[in-house]
Write a protein that binds this DNA or RNA. Sequence first.
DNA 1: CCTTATTTTGAACACTCGTTCAACTTAATA
DNA 2: TATTAAGTTGAACGAGTGTTCAAAATAAGG
Lengths: 217, 217
Amino acid sequence: MFVLEKQRQRAPSARSLQTRARILDAAEQVFAARGFEGASIRDIAHLAGVQVGLVAHHGGSKEDLFHLIVARRAGELSRLRIDALEAARARAPLDLATILDCFIRPYVELAQGGDPHWVAYGRLVAHVSADPRWRDLAAECFDPTAQLFIAEISTLFSDATPGAVAAGQVYAVSAMLAHVHSAWRIGALSPGSDAMGLDRLVTFCTAGVSAILTSDR
Amino acid sequence: MFVLEKQRQRAPSARSLQTRARILDAAEQVFAARGFEGASIRDIAHLAGVQVGLVAHHGGSKEDLFHLIVARRAGELSRLRIDALEAARARAPLDLATILDCFIRPYVELAQGGDPHWVAYGRLVAHVSADPRWRDLAAECFDPTAQLFIAEISTLFSDATPGAVAAGQVYAVSAMLAHVHSAWRIGALSPGSDAMGLDRLVTFCTAGVSAILTSDR
DNA sequence: CCTTATTTTGAACACTCGTTCAACTTAATA
DNA sequence: TATTAAGTTGAACGAGTGTTCAAAATAAGG
């Protein structure tokens, strides 16, 4: 899984870093649009404007590249969620709605926002979450933060089963992904911010999780 | 999309029907396990024990075959859901929990039951629901029944926005799929029936939908 | 500036893919 | 039973796949 790279003897040139970024961005777009199997290295190379061989040079194997892309923005997403949680905690004692809002809102706003990078990354997260093939990758990139929120909820419902809290989190995450991915099913979605739908989603998740955790003891 | 077949002049032989069934069953397994892109006609042919050419003969193009497989059991799933709804209506006036239970329970029990056909079909439904590529197919196979349940919920919450009811349905379906597909994330799942987890799922969905529809007016 | 590590090219390799089809076998119908 | 529609085989087709690599271009470090 992890091979130790040969140590560099020279700093990478600016052009090399730029090319690498173009390849990773292209991979992000293509993986998001077509999924892992549907994406091809040649599509990625073409979108990045480079030769096919360069993709392997900068991204390793196709699986390595996918891993790289998913891990690249996971940290920032986690940071936004945790920052939101800490900011909310500084304002007032945390309740369930606030905790779930801090977890859900950053993802939805990024995935539905104007930045194509994050829109693509949002789809990528959904792919990773849906396919058991990426179980380990999801565990590596997203579980730590999810565990943190689970712990926060557990302190709020101290007599709830750990399994019940975990179930609530999984259901909430699935609803969050459906909110972004299956928006067309719900109705014509106004482009740009859709705070009203987001509030509705948080309402749904809060009530659902609350019902699970108060009936389970 | 639809080409009219040349009219048959002879009844299909028993062997032909048997072969066709083996191919469709094999396709169901392979599509479910690997997704549309990941599945190969050769895998399907090998699992069915036939030559690659026969798959095209009985199933048409790969996309035709996928369509065929998804549509094949959609009717029975719908019938189970609608029968459950009518049986419940005959017992007592319908409430939200009962309506959602009638929609969710047949799918979960089939997808988690002992029949490999339905286990595979459960994964297939998740694939179709997750990928916007199958938007029309999902609309054809699953929307009519979903609309029926949405209408039932709407009569219960007469002053709720249609969009809010639809959102609740989509969130509930996503939680249902996550319950079956991401069971490993929630915890070690006891093999066979898991009625306790199913009740928890219905509790979650009922509370979530109820919260949406009573806060939205 | 020179050396040489690194990046980039361009092409090839060894597959797998979905689809097609002539030839052969099976079996429904008359 | 004879006819012949339908089912089945086995192989090929062209296109596309991820990956590899020698050679050329580039640029960092001495």
